[in-house]
Amino acid sequence: MSAQAALPNEGSGSAVYILSLYVTGHTAKSIRAVENVRRLCEEKLVGRYKLEVIDLYQQPELAAREQLIAAPTLVKSLPLPCKRMVGDLSNRTRVLAGLGIG
């Protein structure tokens, strides 16, 4: 699965979000997680986020780097603190809280 990205809007002055979503092919929860996180980013973080979607089937070595134990997992690298959320990200309130978006 190729990485999907939207370039951050550097001139906005708002916090830029660097997100990595680790999925396993097109399993049901992976597909739902991709849909959920993209929708949320387009609604709340338009122009100031970078999202890459990584398929662990294609790059299993990345799981070790991030010390992942389940998929799908969304990792927020920026803004700090680092945060990871496991599951299909369908609980919107929890995801927003995890990302620090009010």
Partner: peptide, 20 residues
């Protein structure tokens, strides 16, 4: 998340590296 069935894969560290 695992207990609630929200994941569909686990990464297991083995002698041949990580396996999904």
């Amino acid at each position: 998340a695992i207990r609630m069935g929200q994941v569909d894969a686990l990464v297991v560290h083995g002698p041949h590296g990580d396996q999904v």
